[in-house]
Design a protein around this nucleic acid. Sequence first.
DNA 1: CGGTCGATTGACACCTTTCAATACGGGTGG
DNA 2: CCACCCGTATTGAAAGGTGTCAATCGACCG
Lengths: 242, 242
Amino acid sequence: MATACEHCPLRRSKLFVEHSPDDTRFMERFKVGELTINPGTPVLMEGSNSPQLFTALRGMGLRYKMLQNGRRQVLNLVFPGDFIGLQAGVMGEMQHSVEASSAMTLCVFDRAGLWNLFRSQPERAFNLTWLAAVEEHFLGESLATVGQRGAMEAMAWALTKIMQRGEALGMVENRAMPLPYRQQDLADALGLSLVHTNKTLAKLRDRQLANWRDGLLIVNDLKELAKLAEMDFAPLPKRPLM
Amino acid sequence: MATACEHCPLRRSKLFVEHSPDDTRFMERFKVGELTINPGTPVLMEGSNSPQLFTALRGMGLRYKMLQNGRRQVLNLVFPGDFIGLQAGVMGEMQHSVEASSAMTLCVFDRAGLWNLFRSQPERAFNLTWLAAVEEHFLGESLATVGQRGAMEAMAWALTKIMQRGEALGMVENRAMPLPYRQQDLADALGLSLVHTNKTLAKLRDRQLANWRDGLLIVNDLKELAKLAEMDFAPLPKRPLM
DNA sequence: CGGTCGATTGACACCTTTCAATACGGGTGG
DNA sequence: CCACCCGTATTGAAAGGTGTCAATCGACCG
């Protein structure tokens, strides 16, 4: 039984721009169904030309890219509210893969309806571009982190970003939030080796800055973690929800 | 004397999606002027809320982001045909800075006209989103390079990409193209130190794979360079020109 | 209970960074 | 016209952060 957009749980988060009744009506029509998948299930593969687009409704996943040398770069983590497949929608095919890390529920949209959206809903079209710009912004920050920060700073940056996003989504209870990834995933996101990632996490635990174990991330003093990362600790910018 | 869109020199390149007469007519109205600047001149600053958007018409520049620790990450190089300022256009303010590396000529657009574009030119709006997706794709590749490739591979990747782009734009003559950057710029783009960048370039010269001196990049065998980078050597995807 | 996957640890090798010094060309003021 | 300064490019040597290799451990599963 699909969730009605009108009652979409994501709309409770202040992270997203509010929908007008008209927006909701349109999305209700744009949405063609719901998809529930298990951890490890691929959603979109690089090179694929999927006829469908998604919005993560529940659960978490990751976007990644494989290189010829066998190494993997995780581009970012997929959280509830993230739009998946825009690249395929406008460029023709995906340039990276997406897969679920926890159980996920996805809203499914028909790619063919995209053109209709641009023609009849300029505001929604604008929002799509906005979403693309938000992604671009985040990738830029990630690039700066991987390129210019050391392992400890980078990890602190990543965990801070994750915690911030988790808070905005209401996933944090008692300074803890679910984080259903493997250390290898974070390693591949930050361009670090698995071993070094493990040791870096151990240090953060020793320093009592962040404790990530058994899929649960606990951060007592987010400000302190952000300071270690030498990052601007600004509130997340609002973003549209498709 | 501003260049008429109809006679835009960029339209000769096969890199860009062709304009319909209607497109050209619209762009002619959307374009409010032309800007010529000297090397080193900033175009947009991080945090700025510029009322203007640009398309690079001639010359080259770079986008970058400064970190609190004083280090700089170059996000990508700006080549003719690149659109500048989309982030400010949709998100409100720039998340990175842009400056000229060579003398540049920019087409200037009025940000206020953006909304009109979305409302009355769905096809152009679609192209804007397309452009954002192209940027996202490139940033993803850069992230993968900085995160997962060694210095030599990374440099080979960068020079290959540059040469490819240069070829598509008709900037390559006799296997050589202008590349008006400092070694520090490439270093900041790849997350390498200046010294190591210098030594890596020296090795590429020794191996006769790439020779970049005095603002001129010479590559005799692009295939060979791409092989060293272990990259997929696919032709650049077409992109829209605003 | 053997087998697999993810997390941990210790030791060591090595790629990059940092530190320093020199070289070279262009611009400027004496 | 030349000395001087500054930005960029080069090089050598040493320090250090990360990666790789290997082995162990705990949890889960058929």
